[in-house]
Design a protein around this nucleic acid. Structure first.
Length: 354
DNA sequence: CACCCGTGGAG
DNA sequence: TCTCCAAGGGT
């Protein structure tokens, strides 16, 4: 297919069918960056309220840089992939303190920032600064693999190179931003993963996948399936109307967020057995079991978390010893409202405490 | 390169 | 219920 034909047809389609989204009304690199981070692996519908909340609470990169990380994570609560929020905050500080609050303006300079990879760097460079550099996201892989009948595995290194080369040959010097926006919007609205609308496609006469009936098998993507099951025993320790919360460590799910005191095993045990296994029987000798919950199932992309909660009342005398032994702190319910928490924990809190 | 990181919605 | 996924990036 002729490259100029494709670009002009694509932009024409985009201008006619594009959704009216708030981050499409600005060339402010900060707001574009914010929207791109939020939209990573996230649907517009899910990300929209978060974009509006962040843009209002942190209108400039300086505002974001000066916030506490906990406050940023709290506003991000419920959106998932929390490393995005932590990296975004780190990058805001760098831009504020080392770049005088001015965003880098080129693809290669943007790439040096935490949380900005090839896709996001290309998006900011083209949307904010009209740099002629192609975005490569799930939509672009799908659209190009179908149009050109390319069956290289898009998750392989070779596939990424091949599609990147092709996309950068197709992107025009004029309106590179509209081209990038257009090809993604085209993939999101028309050339969809399932049931693409080939009837209304401006390229259905040239599209290899359409001409050969391979829409459903392209793009080719190696599938990975390693779903593991985890068994979380949460001890909800209560003392003087305060609950014990613990910041989660790095290198596991929900790092930087707060949950209850967690004992993980390969299967569920009774409270008695659990305390024995962890040599906690004596420490909790005077604790009162106030409630034992049912099993909650929380689904993540690569794991299934089963959680049970035991409510234990602790005497005020014993609470500081328990806190130091377990590395936990007690918080009032008001304070807990302000802590960033995983959806599972937040739901449970709302069910029994809020 | 393989694996890890969330959540909610669609089919 | 189950699978796949949605504007990826870090390690």
């Amino acid at each position: 297919m002729n490259k100029h034909f494709f670009a002009s047809k694509l932009i024409e389609w985009y201008l006619r069918h594009k959704r009216d989204l708030p981050w499409r009304h600005t060339r402010n690199p900060y707001l574009i960056w914010l929207s791109e981070i939020i939209l990573q692996q996230t649907r517009v519908k899910q990300g929209m309220p978060y974009y509006l909340a962040f843009a209002e609470k942190f209108p400039t990169v300086q505002d974001l840089a000066q916030a506490d990380e906990r406050e940023v994570l709290r506003l991000w609560q419920g959106l998932g992939y929390y490393a995005r929020a932590r990296n975004m905050h780190k990058t805001a500080k760098i831009v504020h303190e080392q770049h005088q609050g001015t965003f880098p303006e080129t693809y290669s300079n943007l790439l040096t920032l935490k949380g900005i990879g090839p896709y996001t760097a290309a998006a900011i460079a083209s949307f904010a600064f009209q740099e002629q550099v192609a975005v490569l996201d799930g939509n672009v892989f799908r659209v190009l693999s179908r149009l050109f009948g390319i069956d290289t595995d898009i998750s392989s290194n070779e596939g990424k190179k091949q599609f990147t080369k092709l996309a950068n040959e197709l992107i025009p010097a004029e309106n590179p931003d509209l081209f990038n926006q257009g090809i993604m919007e085209f993939g999101a609205l028309l050339c969809t993963p399932v049931s693409p609308q080939c009837m209304f496609c401006p390229f259905n006469n040239e599209c290899i996948a359409n001409l050969t009936g391979r829409q459903e098998v392209l793009p080719v993507k190696a599938k990975k399936n390693n779903s593991k099951e985890r068994y979380f025993h949460y001890l909800i320790l209560k003392s003087d109307d305060k609950l014990a919360m613990k910041e989660r460590n790095m290198k596991d799910i929900w790092s930087g967020l707060y949950d209850f005191y967690l004992l993980e095993e390969k299967e569920f045990y009774s409270l008695e057995t659990l305390l024995l296994k962890h040599d906690l029987t004596e420490l909790f000798g005077e604790a009162t079991l106030e409630k034992e919950s049912l099993t909650y199932t929380h689904i993540l992309t690569h794991q299934k978390v089963y959680a049970r909660f035991w409510h234990l009342a602790i005497s005020s005398e014993k609470s500081s010893e328990i806190a130091s032994r377990l590395g936990i702190s007690f918080y009032s319910l008001d304070e807990i409202q302000d802590l960033p928490k995983p959806v599972l924990i937040n739901k449970y809190l709302h069910e029994y405490f809020f």
